[in-house]
Write a protein that binds this DNA or RNA. Structure first.
Lengths: 199, 199
DNA sequence: TCATGTGTGTAGACAGTGTCAACATAAATA
DNA sequence: TATTTATGTTGACACTGTCTACACACATGA
């Protein structure tokens, strides 16, 4: 131990990065502060200097995840060279789903019941912010008159449920059907076009 | 202790019933075998005689849940006085969603990552059986020619994602919008009719 | 330059957990 | 009735989160 320096230097960041790795490999339930400490070669109490609790760490991870998701969704809509609200909603849906499939660890984390049911105030804000973004896209598409005129909350629920549900099912380890990356991409196209058809 | 009888009599069943209660009140993460034992007035090792492990108990709960869900879905389709595959698929979807909303504890349990990722062989069978039921409904509706003719796996994914996603979002404790039972029922109608329109 | 305060890491303690093995008791069965 | 089997108890171990007291190192400013 005499060889090691007393202060880690960037323990907070190291904890976050290693936490992702652990969740990816063994799931949210297997994430433990003591385990992280051991892997990073610090004492078992060190993580508590940076995260009040295990659930605090998870909330921090999930908050980052929601921020990343919101950015990806908005970016996907902006990337489309169209101001047609339907086209934008369609692109946002695909952006959402593609993000979920290429950021599986974050997706799993932000949707884990243990995380949601113990969300920090910041995480709650991030979650509601994302919900608001989706509702906004839907409301604009409705105003353009090419989407169901049922209550916005209903259409938003429907629109949101599809990418969320599909990503969850595809992440389900028990789900039988295996998809190649190309099949996955085709699935994204097809499924989102079913929910938000762009003639 | 001399007053109590040595054998509980129906501990296995008592464990299951009390487990539902704990999950309903405090979530899957708060379910512990020792906690159940304490609540039921037996020693901490007693539950292990009936369930090999905590995850074994959860698998048992989830297997029951999937059986109940499959029955509810099939019953909803059969209850409809129609042999039109589209009408039957529509009814099955509503049955699925209504089951999820009136059996929230079971719904939460069967979709909990910790449960899915540690599913017993029996649970895997039950899950795949349910997936098969959905695919069957979709395949028949496709053959009737009134549903998208994209690959069945894609349409099944889409069809499945909606009730699953909506129920999950409605169960999300952070979700802002609160629905009355009537609003909920209307939502079920509207959302499923969006996915599987019947005329 | 040096004293001091603040942030960070350590070590020990406690309560809770799953799970195993050894033992005890009751019920079922032959 | 004797013996096997199912069920419950007890103790142990390893692991967890989290708290408190302590130790170290660095930044700040006199």
């Amino acid at each position: 131990m005499s060889n090691e320096k007393y202060h880690h230097g960037d323990l907070r960041n190291a904890l976050i990065q290693h936490a992702y790795k652990v969740i990816e490999e063994k799931g949210v339930e297997s994430l433990s502060l003591r385990g992280l400490a051991k892997d990073l070669g610090v004492s078992h109490g060190a993580p508590n200097r940076h995260f009040k609790s295990r659930l605090g760490l998870l909330s921090a991870l999930a908050t980052d995840g929601y921020t990343s998701l919101a950015n990806a969704t908005l970016a996907a809509a902006d990337k489309i060279d169209s101001s047609d609200p339907i086209v934008r909603l369609n692109a946002a849906g695909k952006g959402f789903l593609r993000w979920a499939l290429s950021n599986r660890t974050s997706f799993v984390t932000i949707n884990h019941p243990e995380v949601i049911n113990n969300a920090s105030p910041e995480l709650v804000v991030a979650m509601r912010n994302f919900q608001g973004i989706i509702r906004q896209f839907v409301a604009e598409a409705q105003q353009a008159g090419r989407l169901s005129n049922l209550p916005t909350i209903t259409v938003a629920m429907y629109t949101n449920a599809v990418p969320f549900g599909v990503a969850t099912i595809l992440n389900n380890t028990v789900f039988e059907h295996k998809f190649s990356p190309e099949d996955c991409e085709q699935m994204v196209e097809d499924v989102i076009n079913l929910v938000v058809p762009i003639d």
